[in-house]
Simulated scan of single mutants.
Amino acid sequence: MTEAYKAINWNEIEDAIDKATWEKLTEQFWLDTRIPLSNDLDDWRQMNTTEQYLVGHIFGGLTLLDTVQSQDGMSALKKDIRTQQEEAVFNNIEFMESVHAKSYSSIFETLNTPAEIDEIFDWTNTNEFLQWKAQRINGIYQTGTPLQKKIASVFLETFLFYSGFYTPLYYLGHNQLVNVAEIIKLILRDESVHGTYIGYKFQLGFNELPEEEQEELKGWMYDLLYDLYDNEEKYTHQMYDEIGWSESVLTFLRYNANKALMNLGQDPMFPDGADDVNPVVMNGISTSTSNHDFFSQVGNGYRLGQVEVMDNDDYNYGLDK
């Protein structure tokens, strides 16, 4: 006899973190169409060609990573769920990763010409360092164990994005491209929850392993992070050497690599802490959002109110434990 199909019951929660994460993510729901990106055009026109090239191509790289997460990452993680509610949370994350990817196209549409947009995507789809990390992560999604997939996802969410996030946060710290940065801060807020939640699910499975298997997996984890950092270092030099930011970006990356390990319940790999990061960028992370009321024009039944203020606790942890 065919096994009965089981309806999801949110009144019987196996893991309270599933419900808390669902509620936090739905409270945070946003769309790029509600942010007045055209208000940044004056700032954009005052930038030199090096800065404009950097912004456009950094966002091309971020688009690729969000595409990996939305098209392959969450579907891979959903194969190994512990609860039905967990799959619902992954469905939410999968959709928001698509929102993130689309948001960059909204930025391109506002700031760039059609020819520039075509060049950005051609470059993104052929850049050796971007393609290497996308294929490395997706290879784990396709062939890795359930816990390896979660490690790859957390490294992408909490580490690999940050070579791109540095740029808009830097400009925000100088009061430039503030609406573009508003989108990035909303993405950051989502990613902090995604990384924390998936890291929590990893820890549940990791703690069930025998000590010998834990040590083996930890070795695999740190080797992967080292390989990703090596590639990210090359990508950072390619993108930032001309503008002179490479060493500052690499410090930011190492800091966030440690955050990824923290989400996975592991010890840091690098000595870099928050005090080592460019304070302008850290200020960009912790500055309050502009409190756009995204849904005031679509009816009270669909009004979510203002964007909540983002602070360092949101950035660091994303989900109250």
Rank of each mutant, 00 (worst) to 15 (best):
M1L: 11
A7R: 12
E12Q: 15
I17G: 00
I17R: 13
W22I: 04
K24E: 11
W30F: 09
L37S: 03
S38K: 15
L41D: 03
Q46F: 07
Y53M: 04
Y53R: 12
F59S: 07
T63P: 02
D66T: 03
Q71G: 13
M74V: 10
T83Q: 08
Q84G: 14
Q85D: 11
E87R: 06
V89Y: 11
F90P: 10
N91G: 06
S106A: 10
I107E: 03
T110R: 02
N112H: 04
A115G: 03
E116D: 09
I120F: 06
D122Q: 14
T126S: 14
E128D: 06
Q131Y: 03
Q131C: 13
K133G: 08
I137R: 08
N138M: 13
G139L: 05
I140N: 05
Q142M: 12
T143N: 14
G144V: 13
G144F: 12
Q148F: 01
F161E: 02
S163A: 10
Y166L: 01
Y166E: 04
Q176T: 05
E182K: 07
R189S: 11
D190S: 03
I198T: 12
Y200R: 12
G205L: 01
F206D: 09
P210L: 07
E212L: 10
D227N: 13
E232T: 11
T236P: 01
T236V: 11
Q238D: 01
Y240P: 00
Y240M: 00
E242M: 05
R254A: 04
A257M: 08
F270I: 09
M282R: 14
M282C: 03
M282Y: 04
N291A: 15
S296Q: 11
Q297T: 14
Q306A: 11
E308M: 02
M310I: 15
D311T: 09
L319M: 02
K321N: 08
